[in-house]
Design a protein around this nucleic acid. Structure first.
Length: 597
RNA sequence: GGGGUCGUAGUUCAGCUCGGUUAGAACGCCGGCCUGUCACGUCGGAAGUCGUGGGUUCAAAUCCCAUCGGCCCCGCCA
């Protein structure tokens, strides 16, 4: 710890430029620079300092003969000292140009320098291309954020958000803030609760999203609303999930799904243009939910590669292969994946794959290599020519391909093969970030059955409008009813989702009933919504997109922590500040809260 | 709640299978020398509760048990 209380006044010269912004054209100019010492090369006589600020680094030269005062200061400089320097930009001689850095054609001959602050030796290197242990990086996040990569990531995120704001503003959307202290909601993720001191024993909840608030803004007549909204969900973390995150949240009156889809396509195109100078070309392809599940085993398929699932029930309708015949007799299905000849799976790899499926999913894997002389593999002999021909047609088999086959309930087989498909994609380098494959998944089901809760639950949320063609199904077979909901997917990552909302109070009440929310509970928890819908609520709908995930894609990283300034660990802890922490008993008393352990 | 993986100098890592002298390397740090380096060079030096606790053993970084923490995944995430 330093005991030096010299709070240096600022130097008498102004900062004229950013270090990293100087170029050959600046030669001859007198400049003032402030920055951190990124490298120090002391030749005993000449001293070179790489000075870094947010725009990059530039080389400072301290010459003991020309400026002994400045040279004396440079001798004491160490890594990460914060320094002000004044001097002339000079063109480097040909032999000393450094082509590796943007400022390499010039350097600054320092006439005067001042150390504005000293620094302890940094606990990890802050240079380009260096990353340390994430635990240490998070503990000293303010140093980690000095690293050029992190500076780049956060500024890309900034540019993306700016492009979104410009685009939505240009389309007549109004930015309106909504409360962070809100009310707990049944359904959905676990709420973060905030105790109310003024109302002992009562709690606010942090919003999981401003869903109902933006609906109320539509009812209130703002017509087009957006917000970069902070959302909170008290669920376990993942590489792409933090407990607090940001959404581009928007809502408009009287949209058709196509209107929202076109709007978002334009927005994403604007973002990619502004941030990455990449031309993404709407319209994006669309798949229905049913098709996505059937062909890719996922509601957010990665479209960068093929390896589609193929239903082979027909091919094996009359098979003598006992395992398949019995599965079909049980009403199960057989799905296959054609692995093209460009991907050669060894016997060992196939065995490992089969073992994995057996152990984790209890599913058996059958496979066959399509060789010149016919099918080869442990089960080939059980599969007759008719079935082979049929598989060949359905899956488009060629010589050299491998066909993977699994029998079981579609509800189990498809997601399992969908997962296997992604593993194969990873393993064989088919998921390159060079490609951008956007996709809309539409016509989600309105409800699904929750084994855990033993009731219907919303696939999207309880305010999602049913497809107008499926209103009758709400009575007869609600599980078959489709929703006016749509998700936008990029490279297998869900970027966002939205829907047309219910604007009729009776229909909304019907939806609550189907979810097992009785009249009384609905009134208590959503009375304000039902009431608002009764006052001339216009039809409305919208969407929300994850800002953090979008930033991840734009930065080509696979961790959300790389695009969030102060993220939390997997156990939802902030390693820098130690939050969450114990609190003073007095605070708890004020809140009428007793902690039980 | 569960599975996997990692934890050794400030940092990155080796050593751990098969227990045995003083736990090594590189980078960083400190000091000397050095006027064209840019990962400067060069000479010298300091630096370790081997995550923590317990056990086995004559002896534990190494084997066993528990525990804490980082990361990845399952469950969870309307």
């Amino acid at each position: 710890m330093t005991t030096n209380f010299d709070f240096s006044p600022l130097p008498p010269w102004p900062r004229t430029d950013y270090c990293g912004a100087l170029r050959a054209a600046d030669a001859g100019r007198q400049v003032g620079l402030w920055g951190w010492v990124a490298a120090r090369r002391d030749h005993g006589g000449l001293i070179f300092i790489d000075l870094r600020d947010r725009e990059g680094i530039v080389q400072l030269v301290f010459n003991p003969e020309r400026n002994p005062g400045a040279h004396e200061i440079a001798r004491a400089l160490r890594m990460e000292y914060y320094v002000a320097a004044r001097g002339e930009v000079v063109r480097r001689s040909d032999s000393t140009v450094n082509a590796q850095i943007p400022t390499g054609e010039i350097e600054v001959a320092v006439a005067e320098a001042k150390t504005l602050n000293t620094s302890l030796a940094p606990p990890f290197p802050l240079g380009e291309g260096e990353t340390g242990n994430e635990e240490v990086r998070l503990r000293y996040r303010y140093l980690d954020l000095r690293r050029p990569e992190m500076q780049r990531n956060l500024r890309r995120r900034h540019r993306a958000v700016r492009a979104v704001r410009d685009y939505l503003d240009g389309n007549g959307f109004i930015d309106i803030e909504t409360p962070i202290l809100w009310r707990p909601t049944p359904e959905g993720a676990r709420d973060y609760l905030v105790p109310s001191r003024v109302n002992p024993g009562k709690f606010y909840a942090l919003p999981q999203s401003p869903q109902l608030l933006k609906q109320l803004l539509m009812i209130a007549g703002y017509d087009r609303y957006y917000q970069i909204a902070r959302c909170f969900r008290d669920e376990d973390l993942r590489a792409n999930r933090q407990p607090e995150f940001s959404q581009i949240d928007l809502e408009m009156t009287c949209p058709r799904p196509d209107d929202i889809i076109a709007l978002v396509e334009g927005m994403l195109a604007a973002v990619y243009r502004a941030v990455a100078a990449i031309d993404v070309k709407p319209p994006f392809p669309r798949l229905t939910y049913a098709e996505a599940i059937d062909r890719f085993g996922s509601d957010k398929p990665d479209m960068r590669f093929d390896l589609e699932l193929k239903r082979l029930d027909q091919a094996f309708a009359a098979t003598a292969f006992k395992v398949f015949a019995e599965a079909l007799a049980r009403g199960e299905s057989i799905y296959g994946i054609r692995v093209p000849s460009t991907i050669q799976l060894s016997r060992r790899e196939l065995d490992d794959m089969a073992e994995g499926l057996k152990a984790r999913q209890g599913l058996g894997l059958a496979w066959a290599k399509i060789a010149e002389g016919g099918w080869q593999g442990p089960v080939a002999k059980f599969i007759d020519d008719a079935a082979r021909a049929h598989c060949g047609r359905v899956a488009g088999l060629h010589h050299g391909d491998t066909l993977l086959m699994v029998a079981g309930r579609p509800g189990k087989v498809r997601p399992t093969l969908g997962e296997l498909r992604l593993q194969l994609g990873d393993k064989f380098g088919l998921r390159s970030n060079e490609q951008l494959r956007f996709l809309w998944v539409v016509e989600f089901p309105l409800f699904e059955y929750s084994d855990q809760e033993r009731r219907l639950v919303s696939v999207n949320h309880p305010f999602t409008a049913p497809h107008p063609d499926d209103l009758e199904l709400l009575r007869s077979d609600p599980l078959k009813a489709r929703a006016l909901a749509y998700d936008v997917v990029l490279n297998g990552e869900e970027l966002g989702g939205g829907s047309i909302r219910i604007h009729n109070p009776d229909l909304q009440m019907r939806a609550f009933e189907l979810l097992g929310i009785g009249r009384e509970e609905a009134q208590e928890k959503f009375g304000f919504l039902l009431e608002a819908l009764s006052y001339g609520a216009p039809p409305h709908g919208g969407i929300a997109l994850g800002v953090d995930r979008l930033a991840m894609m734009l930065c080509g990283t696979d961790s959300l922590r790389d695009v969030i300034a102060f993220p939390k660990t997997q156990r939802a802890v902030d390693l820098m500040t130690g939050a969450p922490t114990d609190v003073d008993p007095r605070q708890l008393r004020d809140l009428s809260i007793k902690v039980i352990k």
